[in-house]
Structures are given as C-alpha cells and as structure tokens.
C-alpha cells in the first residue's frame, strides 16, 4: 500500500532550531506497523531520523509517540488502521516531555514522578515469621496495574501535565496505587496511610480532571485514571477528608442525597469549606458576573419529585446497615 508519513522533525544542532513537518512517501505491506514504516524511512530515505525503539512487540515501552494526535506505541499500531482517506499518517513526538530530537523526548520528568511515589513495598507492621502472604485475589486485582511498561503514553496526553508539570501525573499515580492496593504495604491491615497522605496533597490525586485521555492512550490496559479514582476512594476511606477534592466529592453526595439534583450555588461553598473566607471571596467576581448576566443558579433549590426515594437510596448505599 502507498502511504505518506508526515513527521514532526526537530534538530537541536542547527542554527535557530525550530520544529517542522516533513512528508515521506513509501510503500508498505498491508500488515506493517507504524514502527516498520519509521524504520524503513530511517534505513532507506533519511538516516538522520531519530526515534527510540527496541522490542517491536509492545513490551519494552520505547516507541510511544503521538500517532494522528493521540499517544500510542508505534509498534502496536498498524499502518492500515492509522491512515486517513488520503493515505497519510501524522507522527509527532510524545507530548508534555521536552523534545530532544525528532521523535525522541526527555524522560527525566517521567522518572522524577515515578521516584517521587517511592515505588517499592513499605510494610509497616511487624515482620512475619515467614513470607509476606498476599492473596491471589489481591494480586490478580493488581495485575493490570503491574502491566505498565513505562512508555509514557499517558503522560504524553495528560491534560493537566500539559498546563502544569508539577502534577504527579497518571503513570506515577497508577504506580502508587499498585502499592496502596497491595495488602503487604502499609500497616497490618494493609492501609498505606502515610503514602495516601502524601498522594492527597496538592499536585497529587485530586488534581486529575478525569478527562480519560490516559485511559485511551495506555497500550496495556492500566487505565491510570481509574486507579486515581480508586486512590481518592482509599484516601476518603482512610479519613483524609481535609482537601477541596474530598470535600467536593462528599458535598456532591450530600447534596444529591438531599434534593436529588445538584445545587450549583452550594457545591463550591461546601468544597472550599464554609469557614474559608478567602476561598469564598474568590468566587465573588465570578458570582457577580453570573448574576448580572442572568446566569446565577437559582438560590431557592427545590427538590425533585419523589426525592424521598433518592434520599433512602443514598442513605442506605452510603451507610449500609451491618450484615
């Protein structure tokens, strides 16, 4: 099949380096991967094209890049499925991390975040006589998280890291969950209190927007966002409720459990905390602008019909009676 591979190139060694697009026309087999195409370009058309690759079978995690705007592994993506109507594939380096040359990015940021979550077991209880025993169930639960190959696809497409590189990010938070959900980590009950405290701080689990980009980008089914949501649940369960994120989730449940639907005027107040005067003041300009444009949510918040049934459900499922 005839295809055009359009590559975002960058050479730091020229004078005034700037990135630019370059098109490479080539003929590929129907079964070829995007990585096959890139290697063919490097071998037959332009030996200066830089990219990382090794295993060619989605194990090493070297060849993550943006393919048609979305992060993924070049070796796991078929050319035939990636071409558009004009038989073109658009290839760019991974996002968020700085480009070194062409499709090679600097992973320092990625590894810093992984190190920050201390990715090793930290048991705190008394040492057992023999081995630490973990149930099959708990290990099976972790198997999808441990499939992470550190390719950086999730970090590349993270909407928060794009505007704020201090965010721990999807890879590191998913890695952290691998330990907080491990029964051998933390106290005798397997609760990783100290870890959760650190992860619940600013730049941690509550800064995720739940946009789902990382779940789509991950080539191994780690579903980092789902792990971040599980971390939030663990943090609230562990009593770490003194953050805007935790208050936001709790206030949401409380409000829906009272009137059946969202009270937009009350939610931000409960989120920043009713006694947090500076926090509340910060809403004033926005509230004022909404008011004069007729966009202020109704201050008298009526209940939905048959709200009693919703209240009952929320009460029962939030506070289940002991079995």
């Amino acid at each position: 099949m005839e295809v055009t591979v359009r590559i975002r190139r960058y050479d730091p060694e020229v004078e005034n380096p700037e990135s630019y697009w370059q098109d490479f026309p080539l003929t590929m087999d129907d079964s070829a991967t995007v990585l096959d195409a890139l290697i063919k370009i490097r071998e037959q058309q332009d030996g200066t094209l830089s990219l990382r690759c090794s295993c060619r079978s989605s194990i090493c995690g070297s060849c993550a890049m943006r393919i048609n705007g979305q992060a993924g592994l070049a070796c796991k993506t078929q050319v035939a499925s990636a071409i558009d109507d004009a038989s073109t594939i658009v290839i760019e380096p991974a996002g968020v991390m700085p480009v070194i040359k062409d499709l090679v990015v600097d992973f320092a940021l990625f590894w810093d975040k992984i190190r920050e979550v201390e990715p090793y077991l930290q048991p705190q209880g008394e040492e057992p006589e023999g081995e630490y025993i973990a149930s099959n169930e708990s290990m099976l639960h972790l198997s999808s998280v441990t499939s992470c190959i550190m390719c950086g696809a999730c970090v590349s497409d993270c909407t928060v890291m794009e505007v704020d590189p201090t965010f721990l990010g999807p890879a590191a938070l998913a890695k952290a969950y691998r330990f907080t959900a491990d029964p051998r980590d933390g106290d005798a009950k397997g609760i990783s209190q100290e870890r959760l405290e650190k992860l619940a701080a600013p730049t941690g689990m509550w800064d995720c927007t739940r946009c789902g980009e990382c779940v789509t980008a991950c080539p191994k089914g780690v579903a980092p966002m789902d792990r971040i949501m599980a971390l939030r649940d663990q943090a609230m369960e562990a009593g770490l409720n003194n953050s805007n994120g935790a208050r936001h989730a709790e206030a949401f449940v409380e409000i829906v459990g009272h009137s059946g639907w969202l009270n937009e005027a009350l939610l931000p107040v409960k989120t920043v905390g009713i006694t947090n005067i500076p926090g509340l003041m910060s809403f004033l300009p926005v509230g004022w602008r909404a008011l004069i444009h007729g966009k202020m949510p109704p201050l008298v918040h009526h209940n939905i019909e048959k709200v009693k049934n919703v209240r009952k459900l929320v009460k029962k499922l939030e506070d289940p009676p002991p079995e």
């Binding site: 909407t159 928060v160 805007n244």
Partner: peptide, 19 residues
C-alpha cells in the same frame, strides 16, 4: 477533544483556568 478544566475548578483553579 481535550479537557476544559471544569472538574478541577474548585480544586486547582490555576490549572483549570490555564486550560
């Protein structure tokens, strides 16, 4: 198809507004 930032508005307004 990216995020508008709304879900973290009351959690990290700077990032939300940056989006």
């Amino acid at each position: 198809t990216r995020c508008c930032g709304f879900p973290i508005l009351t959690i990290n307004e700077t990032n939300s507004v940056a989006m």
